[in-house]
Simulated assay, not measured.
Amino acid sequence: MPNAKDKDRRESSKLNRRQFLGQSLFATTALALGSQLSWAQDSSPIMRTIPSTGRQIPAIGLGSSATFSQVAREEDIEAVRGVMSTLHRLGGRVFDTAPGYGASEEVAGQVAQNLGIEDDLFWATKLNVARNGPADPAAAREQLETSFARVGKPTIDLVQVHNMGDPDVQLGILQEYKEAGRIQHIGITTTRESQYAELMQVMRQYPLDFIGIDYAVDNRNVEQEILPLAQEQGIAVLAYAPFGRTRLWSRVGDRPVPGYAAEFDAHTWGQFFLKFVISHPAITAATPSTSRPTNMEDNIGAMIGRLPDQAMRQRMIATVDELPMA
């Protein structure tokens, strides 16, 4: 039987959703989501192939910054368990974390092992011991070994250098671990436009499997050069901040989802935003962060059914461009 704490958490989740979508929209979303999830049980999720290895992963995953990081820091194990078990149950597999996200990596590792799903997850973490200068190789290896202990499996699926930190040293170390069979994929990330030029240099210089970048319907600068380069170089892409962190929620307010969204099976604004992101051919997976199972369910709905074509993507852009700025 659900306890009082579980009931309070569900009620808090509903209130949080109303902050962004408005009370009437939340009610509509809940009805549509129930139908969508019933369909999801019998439908295959949209899968994407990692160019360098041919491995396939679902197109929607879970990030662990922002609200996820907050509940992990507060040691709210039930909240972490709820969202991770929902991800797994509904077919999601990609979990993106980092030692720099507070307690996220440690707590999520404990929860995944307790749930017995650690081997099912595509575990993507990061390396960065170069925040204020050159990376210390010994410190980098120590951080990696800590990540291995937290994940609880002998091979980590993906480790990326976080925020362009000393790629010469840190990518070199990741390559060593990859050659030893301890890491399957390596890459590098940034969500800072000021680092895009450097990122492209690294993409051309190193044998990367992945990059992680910020991309949303109202944040499309990476379409100009970075995404085409990823396609040219055969590099997979994780899309971060697909909701513009909270910016897009603030922009839509209590507006209903456009009726035309049903043409690509988007029933909520969250699915609208995520389907735009994963419909770009360069994007391998999007990893929105959340600490609420209801939001995780909504996000998973974005990798079920149809995706917008190029003409529809332009219509989606026009819709968002007409919204007030947050």
Score class of each variant (00 low, 15 high):
residue 93 R to W: 00
residue 94 V to D: 00
residue 95 F to Q: 06
residue 96 D to Y: 05
residue 99 P to K: 00
residue 100 G to E: 08
residue 101 Y to M: 05
residue 102 G to T: 01
residue 102 G to W: 05
residue 102 G to C: 05
residue 105 E to H: 10
residue 105 E to N: 08
residue 108 A to D: 00
residue 109 G to H: 06
residue 110 Q to A: 03
residue 112 A to D: 01
residue 113 Q to D: 04
residue 113 Q to N: 14
residue 114 N to I: 03
residue 114 N to V: 02
residue 115 L to I: 04
residue 116 G to A: 04
residue 116 G to K: 00
residue 116 G to S: 07
residue 119 D to E: 11
residue 119 D to N: 11
residue 119 D to I: 00
residue 120 D to F: 12
residue 120 D to R: 04
residue 121 L to T: 08
residue 122 F to P: 08
residue 126 K to N: 07
residue 127 L to V: 08
residue 128 N to M: 05
residue 129 V to W: 09
residue 131 R to Q: 14
residue 133 G to Q: 08
residue 134 P to E: 12
residue 138 A to L: 15
residue 140 A to E: 05
residue 140 A to D: 05
residue 142 E to S: 13
residue 143 Q to D: 15
residue 144 L to F: 09
residue 154 P to C: 04
residue 155 T to I: 15
residue 156 I to V: 14
residue 156 I to W: 15
residue 157 D to W: 10
residue 157 D to R: 09
residue 157 D to M: 13
residue 158 L to Y: 12
residue 159 V to G: 13
residue 160 Q to H: 10
residue 161 V to D: 13
residue 161 V to F: 10
residue 161 V to C: 06
residue 162 H to D: 15
residue 163 N to L: 11
residue 164 M to P: 08
residue 165 G to S: 12
residue 165 G to F: 01
residue 166 D to T: 05
residue 168 D to Y: 11
residue 168 D to P: 02
residue 168 D to H: 12
residue 175 Q to F: 13
residue 177 Y to C: 10
residue 178 K to N: 05
residue 181 G to P: 01
residue 181 G to H: 06
residue 182 R to I: 07
residue 183 I to T: 01
residue 184 Q to R: 12
residue 185 H to P: 01
residue 185 H to Y: 02
residue 188 I to G: 01
residue 188 I to M: 02
residue 188 I to S: 02
residue 189 T to I: 00
residue 191 T to D: 09
residue 198 E to K: 09
residue 200 M to R: 15
residue 203 M to T: 04
residue 204 R to E: 14
residue 206 Y to F: 12
residue 206 Y to P: 02
residue 207 P to N: 03
residue 209 D to C: 02
residue 210 F to P: 01
residue 212 G to M: 14
residue 212 G to A: 08
residue 213 I to G: 00
residue 213 I to Y: 02
residue 215 Y to R: 07
residue 218 D to S: 08
residue 218 D to G: 03
residue 218 D to K: 06
residue 219 N to F: 10
residue 220 R to G: 06
residue 220 R to T: 13
residue 220 R to F: 10
residue 220 R to Y: 06
